[in-house]
Nucleic acid binder design. Structure first.
Lengths: 145, 145
DNA sequence: ACTAAAATATACAAACTTAGTATATTTTGC
DNA sequence: GCAAAATATACTAAGTTTGTATATTTTAGT
């Protein structure tokens, strides 16, 4: 029913890179996220493979966003992390046609498609720059004391 | 990521009972849904336990809706079938606080809560009577030839 | 009262998914 | 050349889902 941990971590990792604006190595990221180094590396590999982050080997290597934060949407990250687009019901996924009961294309599929569409639209309308903005709004002016 | 099969079947079972308007035994329901009798029984037990359907033992026994179809919402059935309310992310569920990284209550939680709220609101605004209506709308007047 | 048709309760198990780990290898800056 | 990084590949442990099986209880009809 829920998005996976991997999706959760992926979001945070991209957010972290977006906020820092600099290249970071996996160890720093994993520490900032409180996720094991191994698992962070696995996820970063996936994100790099999908072209959301660029990776650099060797000393001074690490990861950075492949595009500016205002050009990466939540939907993109979710799709990569989950392996496919968000869908509230399985019956909307390819190769998983609902052929039980209900004559032909059922009423529920119709409804699930509607909800799924709304969620995806929301997610594709929000970038990581927006998220940073949102966070700033929530924490009202933490200026020097 | 998806609602479970059990939720899918639960929806259809309630829909089936709503449409028939009569008491039906598990065998008839399972046949109509193309789901095994055993599994149907298991799900029907859950629905009966939650008070969504009434069950009757013995000959001429079976199941019927506990309330009229226009007083049972999709949200109610989902909550029973899944065991808890819909939430897009785990971090919204009780006893699953997200305490990793992100200072305090994170921006993502905020967003997930918003999306989750919208989905739940949609689901609680639709009854099974509405679903029957919806289906009729989709299948344009299948009157005699 | 007896019998057959139903639901109920409880437990079990197989398959799949998720979450995370381990090992060995490759690349690159210094 | 060496050490710091990523990469590739494979493995495993735990949890969840999707059922199935067995034995029991209740009730209508005769």
């Amino acid at each position: 029913m829920h998005l996976t941990q991997e999706t959760d971590y992926s979001m945070r990792i991209i957010y972290c890179l977006a906020k820092s604006g600099r290249r970071m190595d996996a160890a720093s990221i994993s520490e900032a996220m409180s996720v094991s180094l191994r698992f962070s590396l696995k996820i970063l590999g996936k994100l790099a493979g999908a072209g959301l982050v660029n990776s650099y080997k060797g000393m001074r290597g690490g990861y950075e966003l492949a595009r500016p934060a205002d050009q990466i949407t939540l939907k993109e990250v979710l799709d990569v992390a989950e392996g496919h687009a968000y869908a509230i019901s399985r019956c909307l996924c390819e190769g998983e046609e609902c052929n039980r009961g209900m004559s032909g294309c059922c009423v529920f599929q119709n409804l699930w498609a509607q909800i799924t569409g709304e969620v995806n639209q929301t997610l594709s309308g929000i970038t990581f720059a927006d998220m940073i903005e949102r966070d700033a709004q929530r924490q009202p002016a933490k200026t020097a004391p």
